[in-house]
Structures are given as C-alpha cells and as structure tokens.
C-alpha cells in the first residue's frame, strides 16, 4: 500500500503510522478524537462497513482544518461524530473536553443545503437559533444580521425555491454562523455549485471566518480547495476510513491577496497530494479506477 512508502521533502509531513496520525490525540485541544472506530450496517445487508478505523486527531482553537480524501474514507462521518449526531463504536470524541451534543455550539453546513422549503431566508437562518435562549425579537435581529453578512439582505423574504445554488449555500452558511458557534463543520459545502460561484464562495468563506475565527472542519474532495482554505490538511484513505497524515499548509493569509496558484509551496503541496490520492484510488479495490494506470494524468489537469 502507498501509505507505507517513505515520504520526504515537504515540511510538516511526517511518517504516518497505522491507525495513529502524527497529530494524534492531544489532550486539551478543542476537538479530540481518540482511537475512534465507527461502522455502519447498510439497509438490506447483514454486513457492516467499517467507516472509520482507529482515528485519532486533535484540533486546536482557531484552526481551519480540511479533511481531504477520496469517496468512502469517512470524512463526513468525522463531522457527524464531532457534532454528536452519531456515537463512536469505540474510542472517544471530545469537544471542549466533553462528549459532543448537537446544538448551537456547532454550526453545520451540509452539501445539499438542507433549507426548509416552506420558510423564507430569514426564517431558515433564524431556525438555527431555535434551541438558544434568545427572545423572538433577538432571533430575528440576529438572523437579519447574518443574512446581511452573506449579502442576501434583499432576499430576506424570498423562499429557497426562488434562489440560485450559490445563494442557497450562502443561506446555509449564514444559518451555521448565526449561532456564533465555537465549531464550524462543513461537508463539501461548495461541491454542488458551479465553478465560478465556488471560487467566490471560497473567498467569501475566508472573509467570514477571519472575522470570527472558530474552529473550522471542512470536508472536501478537492486538493485545490483544501490548500486554498486550510491551515492543516488531514489526508484520509478509504476502506477502512483512516487518517494517513496531517500536513501543515504554511501559506500566508489572506490568500486571495496574492497569486496563490503560482506560489512554489502551493505547487509542491498540490503535486504531492494529487499523487497520494491517485495512488490511494488506484490501489483501492473498491474504486472504479482500481488497477488502472493513471500515470499519464498526474502532471496535467486539475485534480478536482
């Protein structure tokens, strides 16, 4: 397997050990996963699938962390565990030192927007405040502020069916930010919007996140997106889902103020990550590309 290959040349990159990433479980960090195992039984079959195997990870306050890897490596499962939507089979998940429970302390941005269709933009954002102790007027005021913040002030009364994909995702982002959470969880939030809107939304997200630096966990398939946004990239492998290594990005912020894609560090990281992912996919019997020689593609084209 490719993960056994010796690695060198890029700082922050360390030899991964099976099951325990270099960043391991550090007590006292905001988010701590310690030897987490999680499997799912799919409907209609008795066999259970191992979604995460011995995952350990620590995330400090104020860090923007990208979870990067091919499909089926348990990226989303980590978000749901950290949100407390599901419980691990074994191992522990700690957020601010406690077992996580869903609520206003964490904001979740889903890939499929998940807006309430019968409620307008303002109502959708205010919905996130349902479980807070704010009064009705305070909720409306707060929701309006965040709707303005994502630039949808004119559409506050519009219903989701009247919005474009990019606008829907802004609403979802406003909803996640409105509780002013300690943790922002994002599950491929820009995967289903067009390429141009995605680039603008990435900058928008960076702007909003810099205003109030919570811990951000960002799941993505895209190498470029991970490098553009994250302080740390957690590279994951599939079947069973596991952490391969944690890489410090080490690129200066704000990243939209210079030509990021021409930066040597960017190119170096991008080539390395793309190569690792290609190896992962080709050596994964569960992948469509298993055993195919994709070598010719490695130096051309974008990885996403």
């Amino acid at each position: 397997m490719s993960m056994d290959r010796p690695i060198d040349g890029i700082d922050g990159r360390t030899e991964p050990g099976p099951g325990r990433s270099p960043a391991g479980a550090v007590p006292g960090a905001r988010i701590v996963l310690d030897n987490v195992v999680k499997s799912f039984t799919s409907a209609g079959s008795a066999k259970s699938v191992l979604a995460l195997k011995d995952v350990s990870l620590s995330i400090e306050d104020g860090a923007f962390v990208a979870l990067l890897g091919p499909s089926g490596c348990g990226k989303t499962t980590i978000l749901r565990l950290v949100n407390g939507l599901i419980l691990p089979d074994s191992g522990t998940v700690r957020v601010s030192g406690k077992a996580p429970a869903p609520g206003p302390n964490a904001g979740f941005v889903f890939q499929s927007f998940r807006l309430i269709p019968w409620t307008n933009v303002l109502g959708n954002v205010a919905f996130a405040l349902s479980a807070t102790r704010l009064s009705g007027a305070e909720k409306t005021e707060r929701a309006r502020r965040y709707v303005e913040l994502v630039g949808l002030g004119r559409f506050a009364e519009a219903y989701p069916s009247e919005l474009s994909g990019g606008m829907k995702q802004r609403v979802a982002l406003a909803r996640a930010l409105a509780t002013e959470p300690d943790i922002l969880l994002m599950d491929e939030p820009f995967a289903s919007i067009d390429a141009q809107t995605r680039e603008l939304m990435q900058i928008e997200l960076m702007r909003l996140w810099t205003m109030r630096r919570s811990v951000a966990l960002f799941v993505t398939h895209s190498v470029d997106e991970a490098i553009l946004l994250a302080d740390k990239i957690v590279l994951m492998g599939p079947r069973p889902g596991r952490i391969l290594e944690v890489i410090d990005v080490g690129l200066e912020r704000p990243r939209w103020s210079y030509d990021l894609r021409a930066h040597p560090r960017y190119i170096e990281l991008r080539n390395y990550l793309w190569e690792r992912i290609r190896d992962l996919v080709m050596n994964d019997p569960g992948s469509d590309f298993y055993g195919r020689d994709l070598g010719v593609m490695s130096s051309s084209g974008r990885s996403d």
């Binding site: 939507l85 869903p102 609520g103 206003p104 499929s112 998940r114 919905f127 996130a128 479980a131």
Partner: peptide, 12 residues
C-alpha cells in the same frame, strides 16, 4: 431525513 438531521444538528 436530511432536514430532520439538520434540525437535530441545530439542537432540537
């Protein structure tokens, strides 16, 4: 189901 999970995530 996705909206229900969203509502759970919000803490309802």
């Amino acid at each position: 189901e996705e909206l229900i999970e969203m509502a759970r995530s919000v803490g309802l």
